[in-house]
Design a protein around this nucleic acid. Sequence first.
DNA 1: CGGTATCAGTTCCTTATTGGAACCTTTACC
DNA 2: GGTAAAGGTTCCAATAAGGAACTGATACCG
Lengths: 112, 112
Amino acid sequence: MKWSELEENECPIARTLSVVGDRWTLLILRDCFLGRSRFSEFRASLGITRHVLSDRLAGLVAEGILDKTEYARGRFDYRLTDKGEALGPILRSMFDWGKAYRPLRRPVRSKG
Amino acid sequence: MKWSELEENECPIARTLSVVGDRWTLLILRDCFLGRSRFSEFRASLGITRHVLSDRLAGLVAEGILDKTEYARGRFDYRLTDKGEALGPILRSMFDWGKAYRPLRRPVRSKG
DNA sequence: CGGTATCAGTTCCTTATTGGAACCTTTACC
DNA sequence: GGTAAAGGTTCCAATAAGGAACTGATACCG
């Protein structure tokens, strides 16, 4: 199965992954849940390249997950729609799993 | 931020994505939850290339998410560990979202 | 015993996706 | 008019994924 074929897959999980299953999309959406809404904010937070960010944002807008509005000439806000907000539980469960099963062992400084 | 740097990211969501955030891993794990456990079963179900499947399974074993056991000479079972089972809520929430927000409009046959 | 088939990979080559830097256009500020 | 920032786009190099062929090891067939 090719990635693009997932969209019409029988399995709802596969269909969800066809939308948010790439390397960056869920991190962008996490930023949205944290209140970030601008191209430059995502850039600063994620270190994603402009090209890929531009592409992902356009995809999310096309999917109806983000809403793009011009808050000043040539400046845009990307905000979660209801469909986007509904992804919250996915991020929530990822948060819980990461916290429980991949704890940060923070770097010990000097003699620790 | 490069993908590999996510492992030690401050955010638990980022750390989770460093493990399951690529194109295929969550689909493989979905198959595990559905009871599939062998290389050939994953292949048949997903149409993933041998090379990538081999790589992903090895990664999941290294992460302690799957357990690999030889059930016959040269034949292996991959089964979810507790850490792997704990990913259930992520798949569950993806299932719910996909069902609600990306319903299958199944192809209408003949006159519907 | 030779021939064929399956499982679980590995290797090699091609295609697709990402990373990185430079460039572009509009607006704001001095 | 010069500089800077936002939000892109374009181009090229590096990385990842797709696809087919090839490798053992084991099993079954006659």
